[in-house]
Design a protein around this nucleic acid. Structure first.
Lengths: 111, 111
DNA sequence: ATCTTATATCGCAAATATACGATGAATATG
DNA sequence: CATATTCATCGTATATTTGCGATATAAGAT
């Protein structure tokens, strides 16, 4: 009974939360950073850089892919990933709508 | 052995991840939205709006406070919360540095 | 002083996340 | 064909998160 009440919130709230969740681990931030910098797709170089086992990195990549933040294709025996910029655009616009627009009006804090 | 390897990443990566984590639940997004819209501090109105028990809401508020996204003060028997805009500014600038600046250069996707 | 109201905290149960090693699948390379 | 390489997935252990009810706390009202 009564766990996982996420579906009781609006779709936008859930989407924003899902995006944030995908970024809620330093390893995944680090992966995104690498992909953003190199543009060209990368595979197991990520494993070499991160202080994590290969299987763990693979799991993080899967989560990012499921959340839609990256896309990946198989290239023979290796896998190639890159950032899905559209998802970042969407997040940015929703984030700004929610917070940054309001910020301008309500700069004065109360507590 | 070998859980919680978060401290092996850079401080910026950890900070960004911590901010994202604070926003990684629709209830907390919803709370932040309310606080952003009303500017003026709010207390247990949040409990009335959210589909969650009072103790659960209190816990979410505590997490947001610990992450530095909101600040709260006790006002007699009630508590008053509001958004910490500075934290959002910091997140926004780090997020943009990491992703949006690079986006302009590397619009062409590879996979 | 007692009662009410508003909120925080504690203790618990269930779900989810994090991490690893082992194994599997698929393609190269010898 | 046998073997190595690259990566995904499975199984498992532990940690963390989410949620609730019960209880504690603290100020205001009666």
């Amino acid at each position: 009974m009564a766990f996982h009440k996420k579906e009781e919130f609006t779709q936008k709230e859930q989407d924003l939360a899902a995006f944030a969740k995908a970024m809620s681990h330093p390893a995944r931030i680090s992966i995104l950073k690498m992909l953003a910098q190199r543009n060209e797709c990368i595979c197991g170089e990520i494993v070499d850089v991160l202080p994590l086992a290969q299987s763990t990195v693979s799991q993080h990549l899967k989560e990012l892919k499921n959340a839609g933040l990256i896309s990946g294709t198989v290239e023979g025996p290796r896998s190639c990933y890159c950032i899905n910029w559209k998802a970042f655009e969407k997040f940015n616009s929703e984030f700004n709508t929610l917070f940054n627009n309001l910020k301008i009006k309500n700069e004065k804090a109360c507590c």
